[in-house]
């Protein structure tokens, strides 16, 4: 009777590991090999992992890439506001996001339809208000706003009660202390339960090997955000974690030509986002699902 193939595979791996260790292989390679979860790492481990990732990406893209592991700022929970009366559907946010966050421009084999967009702008009838049954993300009019239409950008709502986090079988996704829901790309097994659980269509799966030309790469990355992703993992909007934890606004906020976007710290009563919630009538998307989004829509 032939040996169990799985068992044989496991033995082979164990032997390789032992061999790597015996030949004086760098610790970080071993750590990456056994895949410790980012959440469980001590600071020294994390620093080694970041350095290893920087080396890997710099080599892969033949240019200097930084991978930050900046933790959440104390006393900060991020909130986002979006003025639906000012959004004109020009999609500047969508493409600023793609460039900032290193989304796949299509499959490595050249299929542009595999491109990933973290922001979806829905075109809706003015007469119907916010009505998903009559919305169109593929609108293609020559100019916007088209007569009788209004626009509804959707991205990750950074829910306080996030269904995507609950369904993950391997705890590869979680909410950080500043409210940002992140994915550990090294630990995601690609089961796509979270994609199915998210009521906002905000999670995206790398069905194919991503295509990210080196000259289009944003080399300033965060380990939980816009670092290049492999095939087979889920990714999502992180409120530009690499920017916002460094004090900057998210890329979509800066790109919006109509100034429809408001961003700030929900714990700071003087922040624009708190002023927004205090003074405007805001609503959250699909409030009946009790997901408690930190993304607030309003009509300015």
């Amino acid at each position: 009777m032939s040996p169990n193939p799985t068992r044989r595979h496991l033995l082979k791996m164990a032997a390789t590991t032992a061999a790597l260790a015996a030949t004086g292989c760098r610790n970080e390679t071993l750590e990456m090999f056994v895949n410790t979860r980012l959440q469980e790492m001590d600071p020294a481990q994390l620093a080694r992992r970041l350095a290893a990732l920087e080396r890997r990406y710099s080599e892969q893209f033949d240019r200097e890439v930084t991978v930050a592991g900046t933790p959440a700022l104390p006393d900060v929970v991020f909130g986002y506001g979006l003025d639906l009366s000012r959004c004109n559907g020009n999609r500047a946010c969508v493409y600023a996001c793609i460039e900032e966050n290193n989304q796949s421009r299509g499959s490595a084999s050249g299929d542009d339809a595999r491109a990933i967009h973290w922001i979806t702008v829905l075109e809706m009838d003015e007469a119907r208000g916010v009505d998903l049954d009559h919305s169109d993300p593929y609108y293609d009019s020559e100019t916007v706003p088209a007569p009788g239409k209004h626009y509804f950008p959707v991205q990750c709502q950074q829910c306080e009660n996030a269904p995507c986090v609950k369904v993950c079988p391997v705890k590869a996704t979680w909410a950080e202390d500043d409210g940002i829901v992140v994915v550990d790309y090294d630990h995601c097994i690609g089961c796509r339960c979270c994609v199915a659980a998210c009521p906002y269509g905000a999670r995206h799966f790398n069905w194919s090997e991503p295509r990210l030309p080196a000259d289009e790469l944003n080399p300033t990355t965060h380990v939980l955000g816009n670092r290049p992703r492999p095939q087979g993992v889920v990714e999502k909007c992180t409120f530009c974690i690499q920017r916002t934890r460094a004090g900057k606004f998210p890329a979509c906020h800066d790109a919006c030509p109509t100034g429809a976007r408001v961003f700030g710290n929900l714990l700071d009563p003087n922040s624009a986002i708190r002023q927004l919630i205090a003074r405007k009538r805001v609503f959250i998307f699909k409030s009946e699902l009790n997901t408690l989004p930190r993304f607030f829509y309003f009509y300015g």
Binding site: A113, P137, V144
Partner: peptide, 26 residues
């Protein structure tokens, strides 16, 4: 800076390309 004070209403603009449709993927 954003509104021409003599003609404050904005002109329509050309949108950036629509996202790909999943059914178009090979």
């Amino acid at each position: 800076h954003c509104h021409d004070p003599h003609r404050p209403r904005h002109d329509p603009v050309e949108p950036l390309p629509a996202p790909p449709r999943p059914e178009d993927a090979r």
